[in-house]
């Protein structure tokens, strides 16, 4: 399967944000602008996550999705706060192609089956937020890694597949936003457990990391945010038209991404191709 590169946009209110371990969010700018830029630079899909939806029990991305879907013709996955069949229907109607569910699936696994039957398996992505325990076991969490569930990740991944999910996005909460690289072991274990595609997420700091998530981690796709966002911001600043609405002082201070090597989608694509990893390329 050709590996997909999926920019992930974490959104809070009207803003694109980025945190570390899914927490401590900083505003980076307007999600529509980032989405457009990634589309024009060859993103395979986009993933929009409402980062505060869980707190309010609702997804508030409808307007952003509709704006984006009117002019961006690649698949859009939307996650965050989707609790009911009606919630899913609403974001699909707003222009999403797929939905990502986590909390609602863990609280009621039958919800996966119901949603898959209603909208087709390929529309239902289940997000698993994994935290490594001291004994080496991985447990699933919800609410950006805050809520402990006690559910073991690998058996949950198998169950999710049986219930009809079309894809799994596996987040290493330990690595997310840190730039320490993907948790390749976690990704590989999940990818080998299931027959559906697995998207690796959390920790990418360079194109090399992404290639490793595919070769050693057996990922079918990668969700990437910091390295692309920071590169985009840097470009915008150099271009002199960056809107100073976000708290970006951490970028110039160097604290924000000392381990993260900002790069473009083309850099990532080039790395995959040079490693002979099958991926969509220009012909």
């Amino acid at each position: 399967m050709n590996v997909r590169i999926i920019p992930r946009l974490d959104i809070k209110g009207p803003n694109l944000v980025k945190g570390i371990h899914l927490e401590g969010l900083r505003v980076l700018g307007k999600p529509e602008a980032f989405a457009r830029y990634y589309y024009e630079n060859g993103a395979d899909e986009l993933f929009f996550q409402d980062t505060v939806a869980s707190l309010y029990d609702r997804n508030s991305l409808h307007d952003i999705i509709t704006l984006t879907a009117r002019e961006i013709f690649i698949p859009l996955t939307v996650g965050g706060g989707l609790r009911t069949i009606q919630d899913i229907r609403d974001v699909l109607r707003a222009g999403a192609d797929k939905v990502s569910i986590n909390t609602a699936a863990i609280k009621n696994p039958a919800f996966i089956r119901e949603a898959a039957l209603k909208f087709g398996s390929s529309t239902i992505v289940v997000a698993i937020e994994a935290i490594r325990q001291q004994n080496g076991e991985y447990l699933a969490y919800t609410d950006n890694g805050r809520e402990h569930t006690g559910i073991e990740v690998l058996s949950w991944a198998r169950q999710v597949e049986e219930l009809g999910a079309g894809e799994i996005v596996i987040t290493s909460v330990d690595r997310e936003g840190t730039g320490l690289g993907f948790d390749v072991e976690l990704t590989r274990m999940v990818a080998e457990q299931v027959g559906i595609p697995v998207i690796a997420h959390g920790g990418a700091s360079s194109p090399e990391d992404i290639a490793r998530a595919v070769t050693a981690g057996k990922a079918d796709a990668v969700a990437v945010s910091s390295i692309l966002h920071y590169d985009y911001i840097t470009h915008q600043q150099h271009a002199g038209n960056y809107e100073k609405e976000g708290n970006t002082s951490f970028l110039t201070s160097g604290r924000g991404f000392n381990k993260i090597k900002p790069c473009t989608l083309q850099d990532i694509r080039g790395k995959l191709i040079s490693e002979k990893i099958p991926t969509r390329s220009t012909i």
Binding site: M1, N2, G166, G195, P197, D220, T279, R280, I283
Partner: peptide, 12 residues
């Protein structure tokens, strides 16, 4: 032996 189904991918 490990063909992932569904195929969710860009293909030629």
């Amino acid at each position: 032996p490990v063909l992932k189904v569904p195929q969710i991918s860009w293909n030629q």
